[in-house]
């Protein structure tokens, strides 16, 4: 046994290395599992990437495809007045058959497109989330149902901006 082996608490260098390799392969396995669970939405995420960079609602809607038809089958719940624009609760419920996607758009935000949700068959077409609203603005919920776009709009007044400062 050499001095360096003693420093390793009696383990040989080879053993230490192999243990490190085991740790590494474990980390890689976890990374692989993670990629696997996110794989189904990777293409969708890439398709939406540009939407988050659009600067106006018109450009967002153009990128989504058709202009959405206003629909009373969508219930959009937002506070009339948000005292804190950085945490504004939003609930969207769609009664339109075959609802597959729900998009949240905040008209006056620097980038209006805020979030997209994909709703599989097993899941109810209802989602609650919290978003930042920079200033008093229309909040638009766009719903894709049976391949067509529908929308509901509500104004939320903001007394304190959502972008800090």
């Amino acid at each position: 046994m050499t001095v360096s082996d003693m420093n390793n608490g009696g383990h040989s260098r080879r053993e230490v290395l192999s243990r490190r390799q085991v740790l590494w392969s474990g980390a890689r396995l976890m990374g692989g599992l993670l990629l696997l669970s996110l794989a189904p939405i990777r293409a969708w995420a890439q398709a939406l990437e540009g939407m988050f960079k659009e600067r106006t609602v018109d450009d967002v809607l153009k990128a989504l495809g058709d202009k959405p038809t206003p629909s009373d089958q969508i219930v959009l719940t937002t506070p009339d007045i948000a005292e804190n624009g950085s945490v504004v609760p939003i609930t969207v419920k769609s009664s339109l058959p075959s609802t597959t996607d729900i998009y949240l758009i905040i008209e006056k935000n620097p980038n209006p497109f805020a979030a997209a949700f994909a709703i599989p068959d097993q899941t109810d077409a209802m989602i609650s989330a919290r978003v930042k609203v920079a200033q008093t603005s229309n909040v638009i919920a766009v719903v894709k149902a049976d391949g067509k776009l529908f929308s509901a709009t509500r104004e939320t007044k903001v007394t304190l901006g959502g972008c800090g400062g």
Binding site: V88, T123, I127, K132
Partner: peptide
């Protein structure tokens, strides 16, 4: 991505306009 056992029950793509410490609520059959 949210899963029930191995089945995806919700997926989402977000931008920075989602609030700090994000909260989501949904339900599935």
């Amino acid at each position: 991505v949210a899963k029930h056992n191995d089945k995806v029950v919700l997926s989402a793509v977000w931008g920075p306009a989602v609030s700090q410490n994000p909260f989501i609520q949904f339900q599935f059959v």
